[in-house]
Write a protein that binds this DNA or RNA. Structure first.
Length: 428
DNA sequence: TCTGGGGTCCTAGGACCC
DNA sequence: TCTGGGGTCCTAGGACCC
């Protein structure tokens, strides 16, 4: 029986790489991509990292550094990134069908059988790296190991050390080499070990990945629970985490945003909640699910400690599970009205659809209006189709407001090169 | 002026049941 | 004086991931 082998394919500086791909003028320049509202840096080019720009740094705090070195800041353009992500995944799927899309820029592959077609795991990794570069212009690292956690580790090695040239198969290293690399890796860099647990581990004199590997799993379980025990076993080469080829149905759907400008009126909060509810309902219908309840939350700006603070959240159950934007919006507005307090500068609002269930397994009720339900079904699918074919917000609900004052800031968004005919790149 | 958004899982504790 | 034992379900909070 052959041991499982997992490869993690992870894009390099993904968002920034997408921007650079379509804007040759950004080549060799320090570039960052900002979060929604142009808030924090969420992706940095190699040049920006070299200048000391930290992940998650608030943009306004690095203005001076940016001016001094000419750092270019792009607003995030998720339409572009998710399109490029899909292209990469389809290339990978063509090379290895056992694939789990783990995030927008990462996929896990099960390669122990298919690798022979390429002449081995290392050869396969290089082939994937080269093909993705050729067809999308994007750089990736491919790291392989007998467990997902070790594949992550392997990938991290190629990201960090150029001698791997973007591809690493742990099986090619000797045991003492593997342990050596682990001894160079801080325990906080291990997948599954966050800052809190890293701190506690350090206090227990467990500083490196090697130290964690050499700890007793049962002792770790006693201190940190079953999840960390699994991590230790995975580091030791015992595979505990399977490939999830089909994404399990989601258990909740959240849409929330910070406002571009503070909001005080109930009216404007209403608009934001209506907008987010409509977005959430689109996702819900795309999943083929129904929501049993909707939760609404609003909050002031926690960074403004001298301003009066208020935050609240309220869940409203629906009479029957639904995916109709109108039913969800009505419940959401009810929740908002119950929570709203005048006299605060609100910074953020959001909705959460909870109690999700598959549409096909819906429990019928005694007094159901089938005709009404069929009309709702037709209306929603017509709206979704129009918005899919002619662009988002072709048809919206009036409650969402037009060109609202509180809309997100995005001062430097690149064109949606690959998903809008009107925004195609032009070659002169 | 300015500080993201969207998820999952586990655990502990309380309510409730027989 | 003395006050069981075992189970489920739900929720809040805490941790992690990208």
């Amino acid at each position: 029986m052959t041991q499982p082998q997992f490869t993690l394919v992870d894009m390099n500086n993904f968002y920034v790489a997408c921007e650079k791909n379509f804007s040759p003028s950004l080549k060799n320049k320090p570039v960052v991509v900002l979060s929604n509202n142009d808030g924090c840096t969420v992706s940095r080019s190699t040049e920006a990292k070299a200048l000391g720009v930290k992940m998650g740094a608030p943009w306004f705090q690095i203005q001076d550094l940016a001016r001094e070195h000419g750092i270019v800041a792009c607003s995030s353009n998720f339409a572009l990134y998710s399109c490029m992500s899909n292209r990469v995944v389809s290339i990978l799927r063509g090379m290895c069908p056992d694939l789990e899309v783990y995030s927008v820029d990462e996929s896990f592959l099960r390669v122990e059988t298919v690798a022979a077609l390429y002449g081995g795991i290392s050869e396969m990794n290089c082939a994937m790296r080269d093909r993705i570069l050729k067809f999308t212009g994007l750089g990736v690292c491919c790291g392989t190991g007998p467990t997902k956690t070790l594949a992550k580790f392997s990938n991290r090695l190629c990201k960090k050390f150029s001698l791997f040239n973007g591809c690493c198969d742990l099986n090619e290293l000797t045991k003492s080499e593997r342990l050596h690399w682990m001894s160079l890796t801080d325990v906080g860099e291990v997948w599954g070990v966050g800052p809190r647990i890293a701190k506690r581990l350090h206090a227990m004199n467990i500083h490196t990945m090697l130290d964690l590997r050499n700890s007793a799993p049962k002792k770790i379980r006693g201190q940190f629970g079953v999840v960390m025990e699994r991590t230790v076993n995975e580091i030791r080469g015992i595979s505990c985490l399977e490939l999830e080829e089909v994404a399990p149905a989601r258990k909740q759907i959240v849409v929330s945003r910070s406002f571009g400008a503070p909001v005080s009126s109930l009216d404007e909060l209403h608009q934001s909640i209506a907008t987010y509810t409509a977005r959430a309902a689109v996702k819900l219908r795309a999943e083929g699910s129904l929501a049993a309840a909707i939760q609404v939350f609003i909050s002031t700006n926690p960074f403004k400690q001298d301003a009066p603070q208020y935050g609240a959240s309220k869940a409203i159950p629906l009479p029957v599970p639904s995916d109709d934007t109108r039913a969800l919006a009505a419940a959401a507005q009810f929740a908002l009205a119950a929570m709203f307090r005048p006299g605060f500068a609100y910074k953020k609002s959001g909705v959460m659809l909870i109690g999700l269930s598959a549409k096909g397994t819906r429990q019928r009720t005694l007094f159901e209006d089938d005709a009404q339900r069929a009309r709702s079904e037709r209306l929603m699918s017509t709206i979704d189709r129009a918005n899919r074919d002619y662009g988002r917000d072709t048809i919206t609900f009036a409650a969402a407001g037009l060109a609202p004052r509180w809309a997100m800031r995005a001062n430097n968004r690149s064109p949606r090169y690959t998903t809008r005919w009107s925004e195609l790149p032009i070659v002169r």
